[in-house]
Amino acid sequence: MKYRFMILRRLTQLGLLGLYIGANLFGWKILQGNLSSSLLFESIPLADPYAIMQMTLAGAVLGFDVLLGALIIALFYMIIGGRAFCAWVCPVNLITDAANKLRRSLGISQVQKRVYMSRSIRYWVMGLGLLLSFAMGVAAFEMISPISIVHRGAVFGMGLGVGAIVVIFLFDLFVHENGWCGHLCPLGAFYSLAGRFSLIRVYHDAEACTACMKCKEVCPEKEVLHMVAKSSESVVMGECINCGRCVEVCDDDALHFSLRKFAMQAKEKSL
């Protein structure tokens, strides 16, 4: 069962994409629109809260539906999912995971001199996106977002959007490990912040850990696993995308999904 979450994630990612595509091709009424804004079962609106923030700053007066949709999505990830959007929904994850897989099997990270890129660049990009939206009167990141280009392209027609896929793949493969999702993407930054206090968390049991470090090898956000082999606690950093790769590769049952352990964490801190 080394791939149980991986398989579930791929099913979720492709399943959601399939529902959107089916809405355009066959008129399915389950999930219509795209990741910017959708309609679930022809009644429940869903919307991208970061896009709504940009549009509001750009001076748009928005309809009630889309505001409600953004609230639903924001609350879901804030309370339950954390940054799960990145691992379970976003189509770019398929591209960057593929690049990463190839990068690992080619051993590029071992050969290549580490290019220094701070993981906090994404927060600057996110802020810049909001600032430029305000200054230019149009949602700035939505004009260039490769996430939207890929997803919208898959549903409504790709055009030259294939270029975005190739660029991100090559960037993550040859330029920087986890370059896009782990360092640059402002939407990931947004969900890192929004999902900071969510309930679903990976829990690490240091008693069971044999310090093999397989989890750190596969983790796309290695810094969140700082406690591995050191202390038993929940992975609470917002950057964790809840992909579950660490859980499934662990041979010692030292990692599992659980609800955020508030009490236990507090107790351990006091010890």
């Binding site: 795209n34 910017s36 804004s37 309609l39 549009m55 748009a60 007066v61 919208r152």
Partner: peptide, 8 residues
């Protein structure tokens, strides 16, 4: 500035 590009 108001269109969210959802394609509905």
């Amino acid at each position: 500035r108001t269109c969210i590009k959802c394609g509905l």
